[in-house]
Structure formats: C-alpha cells, structure tokens
C-alpha cells in the first residue's frame, strides 16, 4: 500500500491539513456519520479542493472510517478536514449510538440481534 516510499506517504497527507496533525474539535469518531449540507451555505471563500472531495463523498450520509477508506487518507487527516467543514457549516454530524455498560439500551441490542438473525 505504501509503495516505494513509506516515509513520503507518511508526510504527504498532512500537507492537506496545512501541517496540522491534531483536530480542532472532538466531534468525530470512526463511526460518526457525516452528511454534506444541501444546499451548501454561500460564503466568500470557496472550499479547498480536498474539502470539495470530501463534500462530494458525503452527499449521502457516510461514516468517518468509510470516508477515509474511500479517499485513501488516514482517518486522522480526514477528521482534521471535517472539523473545518463543520465549522464552516458545510456538513452535519450524527454521533454514534452512546454505549454504556451501566445503562445498556435493550431495545438497541434487540434490534441488532434481530438484524443479525436476518443475515
């Protein structure tokens, strides 16, 4: 996957984030779902090409991990770019189902079980 230059591949993705290696907010997990706002807000600044690429991929709701795989970018890079898009009001975010050991969601578990049973 890394081709002949793994070190190069390591550096490359973060040039897309302007060198940033940490997200500016904590909204995004691997299975957080993101959706492009339609229509897109009218702003003076046009989105960067990599932002546009993401927006195209999330016209329909898509999970962050899936988005990263489709774009062939590390999740850590995609999350930084998603922070920009969220702050610009260009995407909506749906967090995953909260899972806690102390207050388990029986309805959710039963629904998962039923779904698996249909496989």
């Amino acid at each position: 996957m890394s081709g002949g230059d793994p070190a190069g591949r390591l550096v490359r993705p973060f040039t897309l984030t302007g060198g940033r290696t940490r997200p500016s907010r904590a909204d995004f997990t691997l299975i957080t779902t993101v959706t492009a706002v339609d229509p897109q807000p009218e702003t003076l600044t046009r989105p960067q090409p990599e932002h546009t690429r993401i927006l195209r991929q999330c016209a329909e709701p898509v999970a962050v991990a899936e988005l990263a795989a489709r774009l062939d970018l590390p999740v850590s890079v995609v999350v930084i770019l998603l922070c920009d898009l969220l702050e610009a009001g260009r995407i909506t975010v749906r967090p995953p189902c909260p899972v806690t050991r102390t207050t388990p969601d029986l309805n959710l578990l039963q629904k998962v079980r039923d779904g698996l049973g249909r496989l």
């Binding site: 959706t35 975010v93 749906r94």
Partner: peptide
C-alpha cells in the same frame, strides 16, 4: 445548526 441529517443512520460497532 450542525444537528444530525435526519436521514443519517445510527451506528454501532463491534
């Protein structure tokens, strides 16, 4: 503002 797209599914993981 950035509330969930209503058509976005819930997600869980194993």
């Amino acid at each position: 503002m950035a509330l969930a797209g209503s058509d976005a599914p819930d997600t869980v993981k194993i």
